[in-house]
Design a protein around this nucleic acid. Structure first.
Lengths: 183, 183
DNA sequence: GCAGCTTACTCGGAGTTCCTAGTTTCTGCC
DNA sequence: GGCAGAAACTAGGAACTCCGAGTAAGCTGC
């Protein structure tokens, strides 16, 4: 299970108490960071658990969804890394596995011979649909939080991602002129 | 760096658009989950970057802090796993490395011969202090978020951790009767 | 047209996490 | 006292992540 031996108290709140008792700085940041780490661990474990019967992990599912949504069902691996915020070697790793499973096919780029396209197969599309059903059934592991609370989390973390340079800060950009999301 | 090739748009917002355009359910949960995943990745990369010169990672730093705060400077490895929410084998791995580095020492338990205590060394204490200074200097990677925003994140994720069974839901528990946090 | 730089992907290795399985030791029950 | 079950740690292996380095191919400038 996720929590074989639960504690009788909140370890993160207790860490904050200790932190402040020692006069250490940045305790709100420390507490937020450990909360994010733990939340990621909880959610990932829950999602991976329901995906396990389908022979998928969250990482591979995300890659597969990206291809599923793309216009032609195929994307350059480098572009996938950009969209998924993954290192090129991680994409290679994931596509290796998905290809072994028959969910994806490597195709050479028609004009740029450096580039390899990853193309989703019919089996891959079926897997995405089954996986989406499975993960949605558990609200992707987010438990009983309301849609409002979920959107608050998204908005707060959006500021962190903005600060990290994940996307430009142009408030009223309609994306009309971008090369763009449609891949 | 963290983001070698930034996108001209917000990949997570775009994913949500696609998700909803396809009529898929749980889009607030999906968006929150991917935001949490990305936030964890950003923060971990930033913290690990400033800890690298000290030959530490966030995982090892957390373990070291736990020992630093403990009354006797030593804890059973199983108890460390409970507090850090880590699998026993992960604790073994971390203590192996910290011991190789001389930041921790394995000590046998005085009465229970199954148990191994991890004890922080003087070098370990110095490393914790240097690492705390380094991580605090970058607000543990949380960028320019205010203390209020950080506490909002902590509170929202606290509900997720509660739902996951990380700690009991006793609102006015003073912990007086627990075996307790003081380790 | 060719040198030099950049881009795209892959390989090998390190670090963290988990799981399954194993050994040793303690505890509880008869 | 002894046996069964539980608990504490370790070993080996899988999955994901990154980094550094290497190869192949495209692009730029002279």
């Amino acid at each position: 299970m996720l929590n074989s031996r639960p504690l009788p108290f909140d370890a993160i709140a207790e860490a904050r108490r200790q932190w402040e008792a020692h006069g250490w700085p940045s305790s709100p940041a420390m507490t937020a960071v450990t909360s994010i780490m733990r939340a990621q661990q909880i959610v990932l474990a829950r999602v991976d658990a329901v995906l396990k019967p389908l022979d998928l992990t969250f990482a591979r599912y995300e890659a597969l969804v990206l291809l599923y949504f793309s216009r032609t069902g195929a994307l350059p691996m480098g572009k996938m890394g950009d969209r998924l915020m993954l290192h090129p070697t991680s994409v290679t790793n994931i596509i290796d596995r998905l290809e072994d499973q028959g969910f994806v096919r490597r195709v050479s780029h028609p004009t740029d011979r450096r580039t390899t396209l990853a193309e989703i197969t019919d089996a891959g599309r079926q897997a995405v649909e089954a996986a989406t059903e499975a993960t949605s059934a558990i609200s992707l592991g987010m438990g009983n939080l309301t849609d409002e609370e979920l959107d608050q989390i998204t908005e707060l973390l959006r500021r962190l991602r903005l600060d990290a340079g994940d996307f430009p800060d142009d408030p009223d950009d309609t994306h009309d002129t971008h090369d763009g999301p449609g891949g």
